[in-house]
Amino acid sequence: MKDENKQNVLSDEEVRKLVLARLSVLSSDSIISLGSEGSFSRDELVELVEKRDAIGEKLAEIQMEWLRSFKSVQAA
């Protein structure tokens, strides 16, 4: 049972890799406005995620919540 739970939880590093994978395939014309944090190009965001900057951590949080939302839909 413990092993099953462990397999279902993504590590921070795995989430970061998922975020990087999503960002790296965006169009180079895309700009993402993250409110008061500013507006960023694809390459700027990739760099921030790789540096583990607070903005990168925010994107990882969003990615994690997004994945959880699918899990909760499946469970419902």
């Binding site: 169009s27 014309d29 895309s30 700009i31 993402i32 406005s33 993250l34 409110g35 944090e37």
Partner: peptide, 20 residues
């Protein structure tokens, strides 16, 4: 929390036409 949106750099001077 943060309000996030996507834009296209080719439309920065004409936001109303930006499909993103």
């Amino acid at each position: 929390d943060e309000f996030i949106f996507v834009a296209d750099r080719n439309f920065l001077s004409k936001p109303l036409e930006d499909p993103n």
